[in-house]
Amino acid sequence: MASQGTKRSYEQMETDGERQNATEIRASVGKMIGGIGRFYIQMCTELKLSDYEGRLIQNSLTIERMVLSAFDERRNKYLEEHPSAGKDPKKTGGPIYRRVNGKWMRELILYDKEEIRRIWRQANNGDDATAGLTHMMIWHSNLNDATYQRTRALVRTGMDPRMCSLMQGSTLPRRSGAAGAAVKGVGTMVMELVRMIKRGINDRNFWRGENGRKTRIAYERMCNILKGKFQTAAQKAMMDQVRESRNPGNAEFEDLTFLARSALILRGSVAHKSCLPACVYGPAVASGYDFEREGYSLVGIDPFRLLQNSQVYSLIRPNENPAHKSQLVWMACHSAAFEDLRVLSFIKGTKVLPRGKLSTRGVQIASNENMETMESSTLELRSRYWAIRTRSGGNTNQQRASAGQISIQPTFSVQRNLPFDRTTIMAAFNGNTEGRTSDMRTEIIRMMESARPEDVSFQGRGVFELSDEKAASPIVPSFDMSNEGSYFFGDNAEEYDN
C-alpha cells in the first residue's frame, strides 16, 4: 500500500469516517454492505422474486439502478423543472426478469421514488447511507470498465484509444464523492478537466460571474484530485501550473494530454476495490451473516471469500459463452479491467482472455432483445487465490505491452514486471518541450526514458491461498515475461453508450 500519510484510507472515504482504527473501519464497511443486503432482500420480497430470480444479476442491476435514481437529487430536480413526455419524475423502474413456464419473461416495473427511498433508509437504520449508494455506483463503473473500451470518449477529448488503461471510473457520476474520486484513473480526471476547458473556450461566460466562481472551485478541486494521483514531483508541479492558470485554454489542454500520456509509464495511484452486485450481499445477509459484527474490507480476502460461497446467475444470449460472461463479471467484481492478464489468470486459476476474444456482450439486456431465446446460467466467480488490492500504480518500471492497449494499471499487489510499449508511448511525445512547463516536461520525458521494462514492481508481494486469511504465506508467482498482458488488445469491444 502506498503510505497513507495525511490521506484517509478508502474504507474511511467509503464510510465518510473520520480517523478510525482498522477494526472500526471493518465494522463501518460491514455496516454499509449489510445495509445493501437488507435493502436487496426487501426489494425481492416487494417484487415477489423467487430465490433464483433474486440471484439473477440482471435483476440486481435494475434494483441497484432504481435506488441510485431515487437518490439522484440533481436529476430529480431537473426532471421536475423540465417535464418530458412519458417520463414521470417521481417514478423509477426498469426490467425485471421472471421464469414463467420454463421461459424467461421481461416485466417492466415502476415504483415511486419516495417508496424506494423509504425501503433503502429502513434497511440502513434510517440513514441515507450515501456510502452504500456510492458502492453500487463503483460496481456499475467497474462493470462498464470491463465491458467497454471507451474509444470515442478518448478520441473526443484528444487522447489515444490505446490509453484505455487510464480510464478507470470514466462512467462514474460526478456525485460519487471521495470514494469515487479515489477509483478514477488519470485519464478519467484528464477527460473531465478537458471537457471543462473546452467549454470555457467555447463559452465566454463559463468562468464568469457567480456560476463561474463555482465552476472555478470545481476545476481547482479536480486538479488537486489529479495532482494527488501522480507520484513524481515534476508531474505534480505541472498540475500546479494547470490549476493556477488564470484562464484555462489550449496550453492547459496540451499540458493535460501530455500528463495523461506520461501516466502510461509514470503511473498514478488509483484505488481498486472489489464492489459486488447487491444480489451477492442480499443472500449472505439472508443466511444470517452479520457483516457489521464480522467486519468487512473491500481490499482484502473478504470479497473473494464471499464470491467463493455465492451463487449468481445471468441471462445468456443464444451465441454467448457462459464462461466468457463469467470472466467479464469476475473482472468487474475485482475492479480488474486494466490489470495484467498474466496476473489475473494466476489468481483466477483459469486463463483470462483479452476482451476481443470473449464471445459475450454486456450483462444488460436491451429492451428490444428477444426473450424467447434467452437461457440462463451460473456465473463462475470463484478464484484459485486471493491478493491484496493496490492503491498505487506500482513502481515506475515497465515491460512490453500489446498493440491495442499500451500499458496497464495494476489492481493487485503482486510481484511482476509491468508491461508497456515504450516505443509507441515515446513516439507520441513530439519533443515539444517549450513553453512555461518546459523544464517539467524535459524531466518527465527523462524519467520515462530511463524506466526499464525488466524491473520488478511490488517486490516480494504474492497471492494467498483462500485458507490464508491473515495473509501469512505469500506465494510469489513467476510470469512468462514475453507473454501478452493487455485486456483490450487489438480490440473490438462495443462502445459504451450512456
Rank of each mutant, 00 (worst) to 15 (best):
Q168P: 06
D439C: 08
S457W: 12
P303L: 10
R106G: 11
L358G: 08
G228T: 15
V312P: 07
A336I: 01
R121P: 02
Q20R: 09
V312H: 00
Y496N: 11
L466S: 01
M481R: 11
G169P: 04
F206V: 02
L266Y: 06
K273Q: 10
R121L: 12
E320W: 05
E495A: 08
R75W: 10
C164I: 01
D88S: 15
G102H: 14
I36G: 06
T15F: 00
P419W: 01
E495V: 07
L259E: 03
L166T: 12
W330F: 15
A251P: 09
L466K: 01
R74W: 12
R382C: 01
E115S: 00
R19V: 14
S28R: 10
G431Y: 00
R75L: 09
L143K: 03
W104R: 10
C275G: 14
R38D: 07
Q149R: 12
E495D: 14
Y385N: 13
A427D: 02
V242I: 13
N319E: 00
F304K: 00
V190K: 00
L315E: 00
T433A: 07
G30V: 11
A178L: 14
F39S: 07
Q235M: 15
R117G: 09
H140A: 05
W139G: 08
P322N: 01
V242L: 14
S402L: 15
G169C: 15
A387V: 07
K273T: 07
K31I: 13
H140R: 05
F488D: 06
V100Q: 06
C333Y: 04
N319F: 06
F429N: 01
A218E: 08
A237P: 04
G362P: 07
E210S: 05
Y10M: 01
S438I: 03
A178G: 14
G132W: 05
Q311C: 11
N211H: 06
S176A: 13
T390F: 02
R389P: 02
E254D: 13
A323W: 05
I445V: 15
F206N: 10
R150H: 10
A260N: 03
K236S: 11
I408R: 00
N309I: 09
A2Q: 00
G93D: 04
R213A: 02
A366D: 12
D16Q: 13
I63N: 05
F230E: 05
R150L: 04
S392Q: 04
F346L: 07
D51P: 15
R195M: 04
M66I: 13
N101T: 14
A131K: 00
Y52T: 09
Q415N: 14
F458S: 08
G356W: 11
N498P: 00
T157R: 01
M374H: 14
F258N: 03
Q20E: 11
E469T: 13
T151P: 03
Q12K: 06
G93H: 08
T147L: 06
S297A: 15
W330V: 00
R293L: 06
K227M: 06
I96D: 04
D203K: 01
A123L: 04
S376K: 06
E80P: 00
A218H: 07
G93K: 06
T378A: 15
Q241P: 10
L266W: 06
S467T: 08
I57G: 01
I63K: 11
R208V: 00
E14V: 07
A70H: 03
T130F: 01
G5Q: 04
T171Q: 05
L344F: 11
P322V: 12
N76A: 15
T411R: 07
L381N: 12
R74S: 10
F39T: 10
Q235R: 09
L226E: 07
Y385V: 04
R118Q: 04
N247Q: 14
W207C: 09
N309K: 15
F230H: 07
C223P: 04
S141D: 02
N124M: 13
G362D: 12
C333L: 14
A472T: 15
S478R: 15
A22K: 06
P283N: 08
A178C: 00
M163N: 05
R382H: 09
I425P: 01
S473F: 05
L418E: 02
T350R: 15
E465D: 11
G86I: 01
L154V: 08
V414I: 15
R174D: 01
E494M: 14
S486K: 11
R152H: 05
L358W: 10
I138E: 06
V280C: 15
I217T: 07
A251L: 09
P161M: 06
G300K: 14
P283C: 15
E14Q: 07
S310C: 15
K87T: 12
G404W: 02
F464I: 12
D455N: 10
K103D: 03
R150T: 12
L56S: 13
R99Y: 09
E11Y: 03
F253G: 04
T157F: 00
E434K: 08
T350Y: 06
G249Q: 09
G102P: 06
T350G: 08
